[in-house]
Amino acid sequence: MKPIRPLAHRVPLVAATAVCALALAACGSNNSGSHSGDGSPAKPAASPSARVPSGGHNAADVAFAKGMIPHHRQAVEMADLAATRASSPQVKEFADKIKKAQAPEIRTLSGWLSAWHEPVPAEMPGMDHSAHSSMPGMKGMEEMAALGKKSGKDFDRSFLEMMVGHHRGAVKMAGTEQDKGAFGRAKTLAADIIRTQSAEIARMNELLGKG
């Protein structure tokens, strides 16, 4: 019969076994790269590029942005003239509204072109927009110069008449974008232009006594 080991000799052996078991468990839990807390494989973190929307665009979107930038710039120039030359408070208020709406849109359109690696139309010196005179509603340099020489009620009427035609051109360009464009945000902007500028055309015609 084998002698029984004293208890004092068995305690260190049990303690060592427990330490090894804890170490093995710790090693298993540290492998968080491949398993989640419930034992299932952990999902890898999404990369920044995976969270960026694609937002494809086409040639019509580019043409819309390149055309609407100089178109808006001319409207802002006309609105700037109204600040010192218009006599009607309604015309001055209307011109200020146009400037506040279209100046931010110019920045938005320019940002899209830069993101698409397309050139942003250069600003023309003075009121010379001859390079874009073929666009719907754009006014020639002579018309702009003549408007700049007017004041009072004469300016008010000329400004409203010119801006009505200018707005109609913008609505036409926006309609083309809605029909042929692919970039969602550009099509949304086009819809906004059609809605707001159509309402402004009606208001300007009222001021002209044509409503």
Rank of each mutant, 00 (worst) to 15 (best):
A18L: 15
D96M: 04
N205I: 00
A23R: 05
K100Y: 02
L109W: 03
N58R: 13
S110C: 10
R107I: 09
S34E: 14
K139F: 06
G55K: 10
P89L: 06
F159I: 01
G137D: 11
D61K: 01
H117S: 14
R51W: 10
E143F: 00
G56F: 11
A25S: 12
S32L: 14
D154F: 02
N31W: 09
L208D: 11
P119A: 12
V164K: 05
T84L: 02
K172F: 02
D96Q: 13
K149H: 12
A8R: 14
I193T: 10
R5T: 10
G137N: 02
H71C: 06
Q90P: 00
K2A: 13
A170Q: 03
D38F: 11
L81F: 13
G126Q: 10
S34A: 14
K210N: 13
H166P: 03
G37S: 13
K153M: 05
G140E: 08
V164G: 02
P12V: 04
V52S: 01
R51I: 08
S32R: 15
I98W: 01
G37Q: 13
A115L: 06
A65H: 04
M173W: 08
N205Q: 15
R157S: 08
E105D: 08
P136K: 11
M78F: 04
A50L: 11
K139S: 09
P3V: 02
G211K: 13
M124E: 14
A186P: 06
V120H: 10
A16G: 13
